[in-house]
Amino acid sequence: MNANKTKRSTVVVALGGNALLRRGDEPSFANQLDNIKLAARAIAEIAKEYRVVIVHGNGPQVGLLALQNLAYDKVSPYPLDVLGAESEGMIGYMLAQELQNRIPEKDVTTLLTRIEVDSDDPSISDPTKFVGPVYDEEEGRALAEKNAWTMKRDGEYWRRVVPSPLPKNIIDKTSIETLLAAEQIVIACGGGGIPVCKCESGFKGVEGVIDKDLAATLLAKQLGAEKLLILTDAPAVFLNWGKQNQRALRNVSPDELKQYHFPAGSMGPKVDAAVDFAEFGGKAYIGALDQSLDVLAESCGTCVSLEHQLEEA
């Protein structure tokens, strides 16, 4: 029995922060819990067939923590790496509890995960990672001036953007491997992981939020996972999104996907992550949360693989 279990493929599931708190929803506990229950239902089905590691986003949640952080002005605001760790604990707890309720026979562990980045990463001077709620332009500009934030357009709305350094190494990878070997469902690298960089005393926190899709790709590569599943609030990768001539990309090669441009703050990192993992030799999938098993079965969503490059040739 144990020998059969070790042969199960590993899938890293990247769960978008916007899939846990939908765009425009009130960022309440009740709304997040409802969405996490939907996520847990989908992931529980995946866990019946695969060994699963879950990497979740935290853009809406860490932005909300930052706003709450500003409400008490008698102390300096906590840095983003600490708020990221808070969001890892909060979302990880909610996910673990709902997954355990769905499949009580499985152990589920949430692991606070540190990821090494460069202290002089270019994103520190050119932030692109959306966090927090959406605003209309007037409110967004007022908040930017009041709090010295950088704001950028996110579709028809405005949102705060923060540095998003590239992940280099998952410091706690061995612990993740140990939990997976014990057939546990593992929630790791939450919010893209806690960004840290090397210093004289070892490591120190970095002010930023790592993109969870890039962190999930790095994790999938370092674990030797066969599949990377990026779940979001879009059913697939689309060309000309939102226009009359929009078209879903279904089965594509990395080279084909690299020909197109996607927004840096939304679909761009997902496409970059999928291309990176496919070029590494794995299969990457992008699709909607409520269609996760169908996406893995390649009956919907977008699949990126070198196999499709061979088919094109």
Rank of each mutant, 00 (worst) to 15 (best):
A274C: 13
G16V: 00
I194H: 00
S125E: 09
E116H: 02
E312L: 14
A288F: 09
M151W: 00
E311P: 09
K5G: 03
L21A: 07
P165K: 06
E256A: 13
V11A: 03
M267A: 12
P133F: 00
A273I: 12
V161Q: 02
V237F: 10
K227G: 02
Q61R: 03
D126E: 14
C197K: 10
S305M: 09
L289C: 04
L38Q: 12
I170L: 07
E45D: 15
G265I: 07
V131E: 02
L21W: 01
I43T: 08
A142D: 13
V52N: 02
I124D: 01
T150A: 09
Y260N: 09
I115K: 00
G287C: 08
A42V: 03
L65R: 00
N69L: 02
I46S: 04
N4K: 12
E138T: 14
T110L: 03
L64V: 10
Y78S: 11
A216T: 12
T109A: 11
K152S: 04
L99I: 14
Y260R: 12
L111H: 04
S9H: 13
L257A: 12
E177R: 11
P127S: 09
G205A: 01
A220T: 12
P263F: 04
I286D: 06
D126P: 00
T113Q: 03
V55E: 01
V162F: 00
N58S: 14
D34E: 15
L219G: 11
K173A: 09
V131W: 01
L306S: 13
D121R: 04
F262L: 09
D120F: 07
V55S: 02
V108T: 00
C199N: 15
M94Q: 12
E145M: 05
A313T: 14
G59H: 06
I171F: 02
Q291T: 12
V131N: 02
I46K: 02
L99S: 05
R153G: 07
V117Y: 00
P60Q: 07
D136P: 01
E145G: 05
A313C: 12
G208L: 00
G193H: 00
N18F: 02
V271P: 05
K221P: 05
V82F: 00
R250N: 15
G191R: 03
T150Y: 03
N58I: 03
K168N: 14
L21C: 03
A19R: 06
K283S: 15
D126S: 13
V206C: 05
A40D: 01
T217K: 09
G265Q: 09
F277L: 08
Q68S: 04
N4R: 14
R160Y: 03
T109R: 11
S299C: 11
K129T: 03
A234L: 08
Q309I: 04
L257K: 14
Q222D: 15
D107G: 11
M267E: 11
V134P: 01
V53C: 06
